[in-house]
Simulated assay, not measured.
Amino acid sequence: MLRILYLVPSLADPAVARRVAMLRLGGAEVEIAGFRRADAPPDSLPAGTVVELDVTHDGRMLQRLFATLTAVFRARGWARSFARPDVIIARNLEMLGIANRLLGFWPQPPALVYECLDIHRLMLRQDNLGRSMRLVEQRLSRSAALLLTSSPAFLENYFAQHGSPPPYLIENKVFAPEGLDIGENPALRGDIASIRIGWFGALRCHKSLTALDAASRALEGRIEVTLRGRPALTEFEDFAATTEAAPHLRYAGPYRYPHDLAAIYSDVHFVWAIDFFEEGQNSRWLLPNRIYEGCLNGAIPIALAGTETAAFIERLGIGLVIPDIETETLKAFFSALTPERLLALAQAVRAQDPVSFRCEKTECDALVDRLADLAPASLEKAA
């Protein structure tokens, strides 16, 4: 059995639990080391040994850097908690630095995999800081045998320019146990009295919040907006005050993944798949979780023209691509939206193959097989 050590920046990140479950379903044994964010207790992770390295704080880069350096210096101590892995997966750049430190602890080094699912704005700066960050990434990734990333646009617009290990694309599809219910658009049930938009997941875009508030006010309740998930409070002036004061916006708290997906998406007609966080760069290139969650459960995606998300739904022939999020643009579309048009949009999403949005066991098997290919000698020895 392939043994994987997974190094993660946030033990509370639901995406970490999903990746671990995916690796285990593919037949791997997984252990974890990582940091805990101060504002979020760790999820119950489906893994063997889990080692908490330190507590970090969202938005405090210097504190996170210090915590990372401390973890590097103390690595020989905490690494004793783990048997020698066949593969180390480092989820983002800071964990890649820690992983490089670990490689020399065993006579036969494990294979190293770099997992990069977002391109941080620091990496894209054109000043000395940005160039230095890219040089650090290039140096650390020389030891890596594989790059895991989630969008072809990351490869085209970043890694192809700056170099990387051989890439392996894993989309942010919904990972859910067999038999989990799939939702449907309320328009298919004749529920069209008011149009509802869902903005779910990582809430970190203040422009989206402002735009949805303004458009819903301008339309005088013709559209209602529900927010679910974890807001990045450092990105908003006052998230709670804004949502409480907005007459047609409602923040309904976090949700359980994947158990609540069918219910929350079945209650909205559209999924807001627009994000200006790190505008023009990462936000233009990513394929967010919500595009897969929403489409799997029948929600009609709304994407911004020129983004990878827009290209994704255009290839499938579904959803709405808008040129901007100005109030007049949104008002014009929703004012002209007829019940017939809404129903046609919902039917187009329902007609899609769920495999486009849901991770199947075959994908888990393929990923673990690819990882196993990186360390064939150690696996043969173990066998």
Rank of each mutant, 00 (worst) to 15 (best):
A79I: 03
D275L: 04
S10R: 07
R84W: 06
F159D: 05
L148Y: 00
R350D: 04
M22L: 15
A90R: 01
A375W: 10
S81I: 09
I89A: 05
T68P: 06
K207D: 11
C116A: 10
R19T: 07
Y158D: 05
P109T: 03
R217T: 10
L345N: 09
P85Y: 11
L345W: 02
S10C: 13
A40P: 08
P177M: 02
L249M: 15
L320P: 10
I182G: 05
E137L: 03
D373E: 10
Q138G: 13
D353Y: 07
A375V: 08
E293W: 04
F73Y: 09
R142W: 08
T226A: 09
M123F: 10
E314K: 11
L103A: 02
L53I: 00
I197M: 05
I313W: 00
S132C: 12
D324A: 02
G26F: 01
A144S: 12
E279N: 13
L219H: 01
A187M: 03
G319A: 10
P254H: 06
F334T: 01
A218C: 06
K331M: 14
L379I: 02
R134I: 01
D86I: 00
P9Q: 15
D353P: 08
M1W: 07
A351V: 01
D86E: 07
G201P: 09
I313F: 03
T329W: 11
S143P: 15
A144E: 04
S141F: 06
A351T: 00
P258T: 12
A153M: 13
E278M: 08
N92W: 14
E178N: 09
C364G: 03
N297K: 02
Y292T: 05
A15V: 06
E308I: 03
F357A: 00
P186Y: 03
A377M: 13
A202W: 13
P376S: 06
P14M: 07
N92A: 10
E237L: 14
C116F: 06
A153C: 11
I325S: 07
L69A: 14
S151A: 15
G294N: 05
L209K: 05
D127M: 08
V20W: 04
D13H: 12
P354Q: 07
L209W: 04
S151L: 09
H259R: 14
A79P: 12
R36L: 05
E94W: 13
A33C: 09
I4A: 03
H206I: 12
M61S: 07
V50L: 05
A299P: 05
M123L: 15
A21L: 07
L135S: 13
T329I: 02
R37Q: 13
L287I: 02
T243N: 01
D275N: 12
D191C: 12
Q352P: 09
W199D: 07
D43P: 11
V8E: 10
T307H: 08
D373W: 14
V50P: 08
P9V: 04
R131P: 08
A218G: 04
I300F: 05
